[in-house]
Amino acid sequence: MPMDKKKQVILSLRNISQSFVVKNEVKPAVEDVSLDVYDNEFLVVLGPGHCGKTVLMNVIAGIETPVEGKKYLKGEEIQGNDRRIGMVFQSLNLMPWRTVLGNVEFGLELAGVGKKERRAISQKYIDLVRLTGFEHAYPHELSGGMKQRVGIARAYTNNPEILIMDEPFGALDAQTRYAMEEEVLRIWKEEKRTVVFVTNNIEEAVFLADRIILLSNCPAKVKQVYDLSPLGRPRNLMDSDFLRLRTEISDNTDLAL
């Protein structure tokens, strides 16, 4: 089938475990997680609150080094951070002393891209996330949704192959959150990247994902993988298939304490 041809693995994690020593005890956060991420898919990592999702993402982004396990990008083992993996962080991730443009440019600036080119690339992504006209505004002048748009544009500028989004909408109010979910799908369609989206919200997961990886409660383990391609797109939150899957996942989710 042509569908299967597209399914090339771009990133794989093999037996990733991460734990922390707190006082004189070892606290496991992630336990033996192996997963594959396919090229250009929208993968959602779903799990209860504080189950080690962020730790897992930090491992993928190279912010943390796992105690055990390996990660492969396009078949090559990688260690630490890699510029081909970009990240959209949880809320409050902008530098308050930089304008929207300054924040979006940050990655390019670090990469040593010249000023003119930096401006051009940044403008392209500012337009993509629909913040045209706000280039010179400071973060404290923006709403929560707009701030996350800046974060998305910033991650895009470095042209990453994989975009990790770590609960980017967790701090938004419900209405803005729905709007941003649709926005993120629009942006993803316009600028196709492999997305790994983390959330604790089941509805959000079912609305966005090509596939869902459900994690267990702490320490995080892969509990189940759901393929959502039968649902098609665009999705309707009230569709019976949608609701059925949502209930199914809900029943299978560990309660966070």
Partner: peptide, 22 residues
């Protein structure tokens, strides 16, 4: 803020660059 340092790290910045720019 830790998250701002992490932004630098994911863009491949060295510790000194993060010190200087963040």
């Amino acid at each position: 803020k830790e998250v701002l340092k992490n932004v630098g790290i994911t863009f491949g910045a060295s510790n000194f660059t993060v010190f200087w720019k963040v």
